[in-house]
């Protein structure tokens, strides 16, 4: 797990990458149930799953995640959140379109997710985030560098509508170059989502 402080937002983001996740369907069901539970039980359950769960396949780099976190924090600070929480806003920021359901379906946890980024954003006071993550996710905590083997570049191109770009086709036989460029483009998409379209 890595933690990044955003002093100008008085916030900190804890980011963990889990591989070999075996209970993705259960996590998704818990999130859905938590939103409708009432009373103390509901509060406790919502707190227990208060993370952004992101399928790692569509993530191209840690910078990609960090950029979505920055833009979500900005929206929270400016009262322009498009979704209910700063965590769902991170997921919304990753998806090129404005459709929230689509963002959750593509970038959120789905029943067949096996690698997940788990993110918790909060004020600078620290809690034991790591054990709270492990209480929800059954899987192996791996270093961020493991992402290199998890990104599904074909899906990244498809969902970011880059597959038809002539220049990207031109460099497709040079994966290092192609991946570096696509990463820079999708990170830029996330950063400029508020002025795109």
């Amino acid at each position: 797990m890595e933690s990044f402080a955003y002093p100008h937002f008085s916030s900190i983001a804890h980011v963990a990458l889990f591989d070999r996740v075996t209970n993705a369907g259960e996590i998704r069901a818990r999130i859905v149930r938590a939103s409708s539970l009432e009373g103390d039980e509901g509060d406790a359950e919502r707190e227990a799953v208060s993370f952004a769960f992101i399928d790692a396949r569509l993530v191209t780099s840690v910078l990609h995640i960090q950029t979505a976190i920055t833009q979500a924090l900005l929206a929270a600070a400016q009262n322009t959140l498009r979704t209910k929480t700063v965590h769902s806003e991170v997921i919304w920021a990753l998806n090129p379109s404005n459709n929230i359901t689509e963002a959750l379906r593509r970038y959120g946890v789905t029943d067949d997710s096996t690698a997940l980024f788990v993110i918790r954003i909060e004020s600078l006071a620290s809690i034991d985030v790591r054990s709270r993550m492990s209480a929800v996710v059954e899987g192996t905590l791996v270093p961020m560098s493991a992402l290199a083997g998890l990104t599904d570049w074909v899906a990244v191109k498809k969902y970011n509508k880059l597959g038809g770009d002539p220049y990207i086709k031109e460099i497709q036989n040079d994966p290092a170059h192609e991946h570096h460029l696509i990463d820079n483009i999708v990170v830029s998409f996330v950063a400029m989502k508020s002025v795109s379209g």
Binding site: T67, I185, V187, S188, F189, A191, S194
Partner: peptide, 22 residues
Amino acid sequence: ARALVRCLRCGVSVPGLRFVDV
């Protein structure tokens, strides 16, 4: 922002975007 992304997509060497507070 749009010009930079358009350049990136066409293989023109420009820096990418990291943050936009419009």
